[in-house]
Design a protein around this nucleic acid. Structure first.
Length: 539
RNA sequence: GCCCCGGUAGCUCAGCUGGAUAGAGCAACGGACUUCUAAUCCGUAGGUCGGAGGUUCGAAUCCUCUCCGGGGUACCA
């Protein structure tokens, strides 16, 4: 990657000039007049050493030690920037790399390292909602990003089928069961009102008959089973497959929770008050203590969550990622605190908090409530706009931004829809390649130096950035970076297409342009596969 | 009250580990299809980067204060 090369060259040069321990930064020039890349290091040095930045810049330029011959020109501009123009030869080399190396863009930063990504983790009390959708896609794409960087990723789904919510589900189903049979029933006060509840009740009548008694175990086991199948099906339609399902119950059964309690107690971090067991978070720097076990004897989510995270830490992952909605803001710090108190390593736990999703239709917000069943399910959403659109819309915004999911735009199969713009670029290339393949066979006999048009070079430079983009996505765990990059890449391809006729009378030029188009296709393919979106051959 | 996220073009959003004239898409207006797919391209217009201070040679970006929106602050998850 070009940026690294320049930074290394600069570092060596600075050491030679007697400057050291400087954090050298090189960035892409916004204005191509200055060159391809620039650094403000002379300005930084000028300040530290009380010298004129321009003088320092000249010194750097005259002493510049380049490890390669990729620097065509070094210029200096006010008030003290040093600019680098990169030789076309370098970019032509990259074109070959992209065409010959199917792993172009991958890094081995995560080689021999394992990562655990926990996401979705919805309890099986109902169909997945649009909110879960953002979680699901983020988790899956982040996993893909990790895999592109060499990590071995475990996609994990954590659930609780023993809590209050599940009881309410059972009671709701039970009520509908008796209602359907015309018997008296009490619909629970906080019960789920969705139609799927009645469907499950009907299913129970079909399978188990009409003679079930109140509190029959079927009312708790069957709905859970059905909901989980439903959820897995939804995820599978979205192209998401989990490696591991962890059940909260496990940690009661195997004694982990008991062990956790006794260890925290031994550290004097637990106490009894008002019939409940409290975790003394105040002694660890927090404002309030938290309840671990309620007066009813039931634990709060914090207790099993802590046991679960301990389990993940002890499984030895190099990286542990939790994908949570913004409403979990205050929940995980306590978990981390507890683990730290027990002397466990926690620096490798990263929490990805995403902001809420708002659905818009006709410019109006759609209000949603799971309990009241006024939500739009993830299934509905996929039915309406398709998998690719759903996946793209969930990653095209920054994770910290409230996501406005515009259903009208998403359902619009026209040029307004950014997904099609992207896929169209790929389809266009495929079409051209198919056309040429019937005439020529030796597509590799191209001469890259025939690529001279500005829009060709601009595109090639864009393709060169891809490995940096992958690294930057890894660094920030922000899928949006990939989506934006692909959008720009598609734009540059479309401009190239408009400016340069790819299949033309000049056979050699045609081959060169085909090579550039094929390279673009490879990059689009790679990027789309990270996002889990189809790269269609035809549209 | 306290904590987190956001406030950039009419709308939706990039840019935020400080850098050179603040970008894109949509919407508006004007152009380009006997042509490798016009699901495209070209052009015009559109901005007190919420506001006020501060740090700096330089601030959309960092600090302080403040206003607006969202979320959290549960013996719910």
């Amino acid at each position: 990657m070009i940026v690294e090369i320049i930074i290394n060259d600069l570092n060596r040069t600075l050491v030679k000039l007697g400057y050291s321990n400087i954090d050298v930064k090189v960035s892409k020039c916004k204005n191509p007049e200055f060159g391809d890349f620039s650094s403000s290091i002379p300005l930084v040095l000028g300040k530290i050493h009380k010298k004129t930045p321009i003088d320092i810049a000249h010194k750097i330029r005259s002493e510049m030690i380049s490890s390669s011959n990729i620097l065509d020109e070094i210029t200096i501009t006010d008030p003290g920037f040093i600019n680098f123009k990169i030789s076309l030869e370098y970019y032509f080399g990259i074109l070959n790399d992209i065409l010959n190396d199917s792993d172009f863009g991958k890094s081995n930063i995560g080689k021999n390292k394992t990562a655990n990504v926990e996401f979705v983790s919805a309890n099986p009390t109902g169909p997945l909602t649009v909110g879960h959708g953002r979680n699901a896609i983020l988790g899956d794409v982040v996993s893909n990003i990790l895999e592109w960087n060499g990590y071995e990723v475990t996609r994990e789904y954590y659930f609780n089928n023993a809590g209050r919510q599940m009881r309410i589900l059972s009671k709701s189903v039970e009520a509908r069961y008796f209602e359907n049979l015309g018997k008296s029933f009490d619909f629970p006060e906080d019960g789920y009102e969705g139609e799927y509840i009645a469907d499950i009740a009907e299913e129970i009548i079909d399978v188990y008959g009409k003679d079930l008694k109140f509190d029959d175990l079927v009312f708790s086991s069957f709905p859970e089973k059905m909901m989980f199948e439903h959820i897995k099906n939804t995820l599978s339609v979205l192209g998401i497959k989990f490696d591991e399902f962890s059940n909260e119950k496990t940690f009661y059964d195997n004694g982990d929770i008991e062990k956790l309690l006794s260890e925290l107690k031994a550290k004097d971090l637990l106490y009894e008050k008002d019939g409940a067991t409290w975790f003394k978070t105040t002694s660890l720097g927090k404002e309030k203590d938290r309840v671990f076990i309620k007066g009813t004897g039931e634990p709060t989510y914090r207790l099993p969550d802590t046991a679960y995270h301990r389990n993940k830490v002890e499984r030895g992952f190099d990286l542990i990622i939790d994908v949570f909605g913004a409403d979990h803001m205050d929940t995980y710090p306590d978990v981390v605190l507890a683990l730290q108190a027990l002397g466990l390593k926690t620096e490798h736990i990263k929490v990805l908090l995403y902001q809420f999703v708002t659905l818009l239709r006709g410019g109006e917000k759609i209000k949603m409530s799971t309990r009241k069943a006024t939500f739009i399910s993830l299934d509905d959403l996929v039915d309406e706009v398709g998998v690719d659109v759903v996946r793209y819309f969930f990653v095209m915004r920054g994770i910290n931004t409230h996501l406005n999911f515009d259903l009208d735009l998403a359902a619009d199969q026209s040029d307004k829809n950014p997904v099609y713009y992207l896929q169209y670029a790929h389809a266009r290339i495929c079409n051209i390649i198919n056309r040429i393949e019937s005439q020529r066979k030796d597509l590799n006999a191209y001469n890259q130096s025939l690529l001279t048009h500005e829009s060709e070079i601009v595109l090639l430079k864009q393709l060169e950035l891809f490995p940096n983009i992958v690294l930057s996505a890894l660094d920030s765990l922000e899928p949006q970076i990939i989506a934006s990059y692909l959008q720009v890449t598609a734009t540059k391809f479309h401009k190239y297409y408009a400016n340069c006729r790819i299949i033309n009378e000049d056979k050699d030029l045609t081959l060169s342009r085909i090579a550039l188009a094929r390279a673009t296709k490879n990059i689009l393919n790679s990027g789309l596969s990270i996002l889990g979106i189809n790269a269609p051959e035809k549209m």
